[in-house]
């Protein structure tokens, strides 16, 4: 009997009478990282690492508000000195963060290429978002802004390359000197606002990506992520504002 073969792209052997798993079928699965779900999990896990770092970083930065000690030293500088005294911890964290950043960016890049260039090749003449937030739709912009900001931030306050009055070890001085330039301060505020936007969507999103969702907890989680994003953004932005307004000097 000769019949036309229908066009069906899933390969399969027609000979077997029973449906046993074949090696062919095994190949129809996809490796963890090669899958879109796996990439999102990687983004979530690395995002979480970066988020934890940001929380610690903010806590440390807020030490700037402590008044000088009796001997004139600043708590912020002490903390920095302590940290540098623990090179294993410091470099361990730095390597972990670097790996996380790289993975986060590579996965984001790959997913963006898939989403914007492969999956939706033709856009709509008219498109009205009804549920997504401004933050979620601009992750692809807030991400790179944060990336370039972090590079600048490292060159500015960690390595001092871009900071003309950089004094190694005197974090307090470096920060204050930095933000006395209004341009720099405004750039920092803008970048941290982007960070807040990124977190606004990111904190909830990372839970969803690793599969943490429950009708009882998800609404709370969404509220908590908004609160955290605002708190973190406000915390970071407060420092340049405090310097500009002369609260910290």
């Amino acid at each position: 009997m000769q019949r036309r073969k229908a066009d069906f792209p899933i390969e399969g052997a027609k000979s077997a009478l029973t449906s046993v798993a074949t090696t062919e079928e095994a190949k129809q699965t996809v490796g963890f990282y090669r899958s879109v779900v796996g990439k999102k999990v990687v983004m979530a896990v690395t995002g979480f690492i970066l988020f934890v770092f940001i929380v610690f970083h903010l806590a440390a930065n807020l030490l700037i508000y402590f008044p000088p000690e009796a001997n004139g030293t600043r708590l912020l500088n002490d903390y920095a000195a302590h940290l540098r005294a623990l090179p294993a911890l410091l470099w361990g964290a730095r390597v972990l963060l670097l790996v996380a950043v790289i993975l986060h960016i590579v996965a984001a890049w790959q997913l963006t290429v898939l989403n914007k260039l492969e999956a939706r090749t033709t856009g709509y003449v008219k498109y009205t978002p009804i549920a997504s937030s401004y933050a979620s739709r601009t992750m692809v912009w807030s991400g790179p802004i944060i990336f370039f900001y972090v590079i600048y931030h490292l060159l500015d306050l960690t390595f001092g390359t871009l900071n003309p009055s950089f004094q190694s070890g005197n974090v307090f001085h470096n920060v204050v000197a930095d933000f006395e330039h209004p341009g720099v301060a405004i750039f920092y505020i803008f970048a941290n606002a982007c960070l807040a936007f990124h977190l606004y969507h990111g904190i909830w999103s990372m839970c969803q990506s690793v599969g943490l969702a429950h009708p009882r907890y998800t609404p709370m989680l969404k509220k908590a992520s908004v609160a955290l994003a605002i708190a973190i953004g406000a915390g970071f932005c407060s420092i340049p504002l405090a310097v500009m307004t002369g609260l910290v000097r």
Partner: peptide
């Protein structure tokens, strides 16, 4: 659809 995948039914 399971039979379609196994190639025993062609769907048109």
């Amino acid at each position: 659809e399971r039979q379609v995948k196994d190639g025993r039914v062609r769907m048109f």
